[in-house]
Design a protein around this nucleic acid. Structure first.
Lengths: 373, 373
DNA sequence: CCAACTTCCTTCGAAATCGAAGCCAAGACG
DNA sequence: CGTCTTGGCTTCGATTTCGAAGGAAGTTGG
């Protein structure tokens, strides 16, 4: 089921190849899933030289997922199929600083509304995914010492939402969701991926061997490495000269404010750069150099197949160009030999896709329930 | 078989728990393996509150592995059981710079001799493992652009040894072997491990999710990150101020030579430090600070369960203490919360163990051959 | 010492999985 | 336009795996 949902398999034959099961066993299982209403057969796929395969896809009635990707002042909401492909999206203005109860209540209410508006009221909700801009403990579904989410520390996000919604809930760091989504949507054949999210903050998600690497929950932090710079800036983490304090969207906004240019959201910086405002371009180039410097060490160490740059600032071309240049110049030839450096392809849907993917992997228990009937 | 060989399982019951197979299936398989002469039953294990398990172990006649861990001027040779537990070890002086053909021929001859001397001539050799101080392409078994192995670039080490010995051959970077061995011997329950090898060079092996992370073959390089220092030193890689150019055993030896202290081997530096020679202690402390600085970023990013420091320099206590201090001071609390920082426990046998472990995972095809008879 | 419990391991019928064989439906080719 | 080849899918008997039940061999605690 996971193989079909994620788009890796479209026919019984492909399922057999990818799953390692015998073709006959696959046929039996598919039969069951169709009978249970989870799969549907839909026409024929392209021939690979012989008989055309009968194309399999998820049935609409199989269910939907509701996903919310929370930022500092904004939430992206989506209703998606079980693989995470968005069926309906909307945006919600909300200040994460008002605290978890209020934010989460508003978000879940809006999610339900979104599904209802788009005629999905009759389809069962199989899960809710929440992306948060801070570290999440995978075991408990709690936020752990976030630097920019006052009131959220140790709040049991997963339990809170489960209690209110009564379905499996996935809580994950936003950059991690994006990494999984980007992997699934754009680079499914690559095993090792680094995905950088450049927005108000600097996030990073890591895919190792095709799976999200969480470490002990904090993996992927790149924003609190010490960098070299002329001016000293103290970071919220208590140390001086962290990358985030110099090169994040928030830091760039602060620096531009010093030049008398007021900026509300990182995307406005992208606009300024596109308009050729010299202070903005110069600031963005400096940030690119700092980020690139940090990434060189990590690329040498991790040796990924691709480095994907996403987040709203990834649309600032000079930023990406500078990062790319620094990495190709400083990294070992062996590490950059086959390295792809690209900007996000999934864009803002990345986290929705990622949530879908992760939920299929983790909480698939309801499938057994449906099959038993 | 792998579970028994690696020591993770000692009884049928443990095999069932760890493998996920039914107890009855495990019994059938074990029966076969005993009949084929690969397993032996040996007494009873400790009771866990009920009947005592019948202890399983690898039969002596199952075979041996021959392992050579090559350094710049020295090779460590071992004959080991199939799990990598050393049965006999010896040391061989050999200059790796004389080139691959001569070195490998001498090494394989000595390995055969070692097995013969220790009464292992009648036991079949199931594989040969070679550890090398440079990057190895896992797909081809070739050395790829090594910085300190003249004449070895692109030499097909695996094919060369296979042709001469006629058994499966594993070729792997020395730090990677050490990482696998350390994981298996000392931290089997931890999933994410960073192992640093401090000798003439600086190597690093990474265990992610219990398995060696190779990336595209170059993963684990930490020696060519740029660091900040007063004096500028050019590294062999062509960039200035790499970590290796300032903090490796070779760099320390060069710096001590500047003070009129001649050093042949990194272990002599350890002796100097133990003897309280101030220049040595100071040099080692500086190196520790540089290495620690580099590691902080990697620890934040990778978020391992443990950081293991090995190699001959790891016996210099001020070096390890400085590294530990820098990491605890600079890393995120979230990353160091549960982080163990320890020195190698497996010592010089680590690479032998690692080679055994890796060979069980990769080339287990011969097992089927034995069972078919 | 004995009863109650645990854990280890095997037995045996039920269920799942496999894989060879064959049928089906396409494209390739003369 | 028919034959050939290729890949997709199903059928069906053989094999593997499972799991409940039970015997074996311990520990624990009165």
């Amino acid at each position: 089921m996971r193989l079909v949902a994620t788009g890796r398999a479209e026919s019984r034959a492909e399922l057999a190849r990818l799953s390692g099961l015998a073709a006959s066993s696959v046929s039996l299982r598919v039969e069951q899933l169709i009978a249970a209403g989870l799969f549907a057969e839909e026409g024929a796929g392209a021939s690979r030289g012989g008989r055309r395969p009968r194309r399999l896809r998820l049935a609409r009635e199989a269910g939907v997922l509701l996903v919310a990707d929370l930022g500092a002042h904004h939430a992206r909401l989506a209703a998606a199929d079980l693989a995470g492909t968005p069926l309906a999206v909307s945006d919600l203005a909300c200040d994460i600083a008002v605290g978890p109860e209020e934010t989460l209540t508003a978000v879940t209410r809006s999610l339900r509304g979104l599904a209802r508006e788009h005629g999905l009221a009759d389809v069962p909700v199989r899960g809710i995914g929440i992306g948060l801009p801070g570290p999440v403990d995978p075991a408990t579904g709690q936020v752990v010492s976030p630097s920019r989410m006052p009131g959220w520390n140790d709040f049991p996000v997963r339990d809170f939402v489960t209690r209110h919604a009564g379905v499996p809930v996935l809580v994950e760091n936003d950059a991690n969701l994006m990494a999984v989504g980007e992997h699934r949507a754009s680079w499914p054949s690559l095993d090792n991926l680094m995905v950088i999210k450049l927005g108000s903050g600097i996030g990073c998600g890591v895919i190792v061997d095709g799976r999200l690497h969480r470490g002990r929950g904090a993996a992927g932090d790149i924003s609190h490495v010490r960098i070299l710079s002329e001016a000293t800036v103290d970071c919220s983490c208590g140390h001086p000269d962290c990358l985030e304090a110099h090169a994040s969207g928030a830091a760039l906004a602060a620096s531009l404010a010093g030049h008398g240019i007021a900026v509300q959201h990182p995307s406005e910086i992208v606009d300024l750069v596109a308009d050729g405002v010299p202070q903005a371009t110069s600031a963005v180039r400096t940030a690119g150099r700092l980020i690139g410097d940090v990434l060189t060490g990590l690329v040498n160490f991790f040796n990924p197949d691709a480095l994907v740059i996403g987040g709203s600032l990834s649309n600032a071309e000079p930023l990406v160009a500078t990062i790319r240049g620094v990495i190709y110049e400083r990294c070992l030839p062996l590490a950059t030999r086959n390295l792809e450096i690209a900007t996000s392809r999934a864009g803002r849907d990345g986290s929705v896709l990622g949530a879908g993917q992760l939920m299929l992997e983790t909480s698939g228990a309801w499938i057994d329930g449906v099959l038993e009937r």
